[in-house]
Simulated assay, not measured.
Amino acid sequence: MDTEPHTERQDATRFVPLFTYLRLFKNIPSADVDVIQQELSYRSLAEGDYLLKEGSIATNLFFICDGVVRIVTQNEQGRELTHYFLKENQLVTILDSFNRGVPARESIRAACPTQVIVLPKRSLLLLYDRFPYLKELIDKLTQQTLLYKIQIRNAYLGEDAMTRYQQFLIRQPEIALRVSLQSIASYLGITQQSLSRIRRNSF
């Protein structure tokens, strides 16, 4: 099961960013919002906190209100590898685990202080029955996020370390300013010492 630090329900205004985002793609009546938000919770995380640990089953979908999360695995040497960063106004879960109910092969961790809205799977399934348009919308947005992750990651393939870092600054500057050098090095597939050297010599 997902770990749940600092979960809060009481302040409905905290859910506004989610509905503001969803309404960019679909008009959601206020009466529907009133029902949907009853199933949501709000979670605050410190840097390094887990939203989901590898080996657990993803039972929640998360909407990032503020901050950055990273999708990580560990290699055979126990070194953490960062595969993706995701930021505000993006949905995140480990999709295969969430959809099929199997243990996740990746973890989700906060890369800096982060606030998310929690959409439990069990609640979503009930809401999908009541509001069929919601499933279509959520599915579309999760697929959109998946494509975004793949496109960004593919942009770095085949490049040397210096070029990967320069492309990272160009493509994801808002992430570069907010996460640790260790996380960036992990994402770029280099050591933190190599990244420090590249930063001194870059541009």
Results as ranks from 00 to 15, higher is better:
Thr13Trp: 11
His6Phe: 11
Ile108Glu: 05
Leu181Thr: 02
Asn60Cys: 15
Tyr50Gly: 10
Arg200Glu: 15
Val102Cys: 05
Asn99Gly: 09
Val35Leu: 06
Met162Asn: 01
Leu45Met: 09
Gln10Lys: 08
Thr13Phe: 12
Glu39Lys: 05
Thr59His: 13
Glu136Met: 07
Tyr156Asp: 01
Ile57Ala: 01
Gln151Arg: 10
Ile190His: 02
Ser41Phe: 14
Ile108His: 02
Ala104Ser: 15
Pro103Arg: 00
Thr142Lys: 03
Thr82His: 03
Leu134Glu: 02
Ser107Leu: 14
Ala161Pro: 11
Phe203Ser: 05
Pro103Cys: 00
Ile184Asn: 00
Leu126Arg: 10
Leu137Ser: 00
Leu124Met: 14
Glu136Gln: 08
Asp129Leu: 11
Thr59Met: 10
Ile175Asn: 04
Leu137Ala: 00
Thr191Trp: 06
Leu134Tyr: 06
Tyr128Met: 11
Leu51Met: 07
Tyr50Asp: 14
Thr20Ile: 13
Arg199Gln: 04
Ala111Pro: 02
Leu181Ser: 03
Gln167Asp: 13
Tyr21Ala: 01
Lys149Gly: 04
Val118Gly: 03
Ile57Gln: 03
Tyr148Gln: 07
Glu39Trp: 06
Leu52Tyr: 02
Ile152Leu: 15
Ala12Lys: 13
Gln143Thr: 11
Val68Cys: 14
Tyr50Arg: 12
Tyr156Cys: 00
Ser107Thr: 10
Asp129Ile: 10
Gln37Tyr: 09
Val72Ala: 08
Ser30Pro: 07
Gln193His: 15
Ser97Pro: 12
Ile170Gln: 10
Ile152Thr: 15
Arg130Asp: 14
Arg200Val: 08
Leu147Ile: 09
Leu181Gly: 02
Arg23Leu: 11
Val72Thr: 12
Glu76Asn: 06
Leu52Val: 02
Phe63Val: 04
Glu39Asn: 06
Pro29Val: 00
Ile64Ser: 03
Ile152Val: 15
Arg199Gly: 02
Pro173His: 01
Phe15Lys: 05
Leu95Ala: 08
Ile36Leu: 03
Pro113Gln: 03
Lys121Glu: 14
Phe62Gln: 01
Thr163Leu: 13
Glu159Cys: 07
Thr59Asn: 11
Arg43Ser: 12
Glu47Gly: 00
Ala12Val: 15
Gln77Trp: 15
Ser194Glu: 13
Asp11Ser: 09
Gln38Ile: 04
Phe19Thr: 05
Ala155Phe: 13
Glu4Asn: 12
Thr93Pro: 09
Ile184Ala: 01
Glu54Val: 08
Gln144Asn: 05
Pro103Thr: 00
Ser183Gly: 02
Val16Pro: 11
Gln10Met: 07
Lys121Ser: 10
Glu80Ser: 04
Glu76Thr: 02
Phe62Ala: 01
Val102Pro: 07
Ser196Cys: 05
Ser44Tyr: 08
Phe131Arg: 04
Val33Asp: 09
Asn75Ser: 00
